[in-house]
């Protein structure tokens, strides 16, 4: 008797990605560049977040042709994004055999109130979070992996740092708390009590937490690892730079050796221009992807 789709199998898949870089790609050619550079997985998309921003309008699940093309091109795992709350997009991606689904605020939400009940799926899900409340609610819904939201497509690390610091700081608070304080804290941050208890007992989140949203350089990736990320997602940062191969390789190495400053210095030499990036204050409230789900 073998059992598929268990928590251990779904969360374990994310454990295998630890210390690695997951890269956004829009076609087979980019997917091969990512695999060759040492990516642990690729995210198949129609457009990288920076282009989604520029294009405006409604961003949806990618054309299945693109996802299929990427799945055929590489042997590493392939992830794809579904809109928040869009159970049909998620089921379609599952039926195609995608290895991980990102229920993502980068796409325009299909449901402004509810997320997908991810426990029901055989395929594992990753979701974004800005704090421990969002993180534990997503785990409660069945997410097998988390990533900080950051602010996608900006090439600006400031929001990813804010979110990783917030999550880590709240985990430390929970660990240091008396059990009799925990229920009120659970109420205040809107977290499932049992999950907070588990985090307190085990001293960490029950799933892997990557950093995402604004990583543009090897040093950015190393910074997020130092702040406690288990690995990094790089969206626009690679294929919006002027030398994707070099950037991809350098970011992979900086993620592995995030505390070797001499090496990161070497890696950063003559890389060319990183993606241009945006200052947060120039973003309209309606352009902030991170505010799209709670």
């Amino acid at each position: 008797m073998s059992r598929t789709g268990t928590d251990r199998v779904k969360r374990g898949m994310a454990e295998m990605q630890k210390g690695g870089v997951i890269m956004d790609v829009v076609n087979a050619e980019q997917a091969k560049i990512a695999e060759e550079a040492g990516a642990v997985a690729v995210m198949a998309l129609e457009r990288v977040p920076a282009d989604i921003r520029a294009a405006g309008g409604v961003a949806r699940m990618a054309d299945p042709t693109i996802v299929e093309e990427v799945m055929n091109a590489v042997s590493i795992p392939v992830m794809a994004k579904a809109r928040i709350g869009h159970v049909v997009e998620a089921r379609v991606l599952e039926s195609m055999g995608v290895d991980y689904i990102d229920e993502s605020e980068v796409l325009t939400p299909a449901d402004e109130v509810f997320h997908i009940k991810k426990n029901d799926y055989t395929v594992p899900f990753v979701c974004g979070c800005r704090n421990l409340g969002e993180a534990t609610r997503r785990i409660g819904e069945g997410a097998s992996m988390l990533r900080t939201k950051g602010e996608p497509g900006t090439g600006n690390i400031v929001e990813a740092v804010r979110h990783m610091r917030e999550v880590q700081s709240q985990i430390r608070q929970v660990i240091g708390m008396n059990e009799d304080e925990l229920m009120t804290y659970a109420k205040n941050i809107g977290a499932p009590y049992e999950l907070l208890l588990q985090i307190k007992e085990e001293g960490r989140l029950p799933v892997v937490n990557f950093a995402a949203g604004g990583i543009a350089t090897p040093a950015d990736a190393a910074l997020m690892m130092q702040l406690g990320a288990d690995g990094v997602f790089v969206g626009s940062g690679i294929f919006k730079s002027n030398n994707p191969e070099k950037f991809a390789r350098a970011i992979v190495e900086a993620t592995t050796h995030y505390d070797d400053y001499k090496l990161i210095g070497e890696l950063s030499k003559g890389l060319g221009t990183a993606m241009k990036g945006m200052e947060m204050s120039t973003l309209q409230p309606s352009d902030r992807m991170q505010d799209r789900s709670m």
């Binding site: 073998s2 059992r3 598929t4 268990t6 199998v9 374990g12 295998m16 795992p77 395929v123």
Partner: peptide, 27 residues
């Protein structure tokens, strides 16, 4: 064994090491 959705866990016997061993297979 296939892609992630085919990942599974099962009880196996490991010769000379363990009976009823719970093994987790991921891709």
């Amino acid at each position: 064994f296939g892609r992630q959705r085919e990942s599974f866990e099962a009880f196996i016997d490991i010769k000379g090491v363990a009976k009823e061993y719970e093994a987790v297979f991921i891709r």
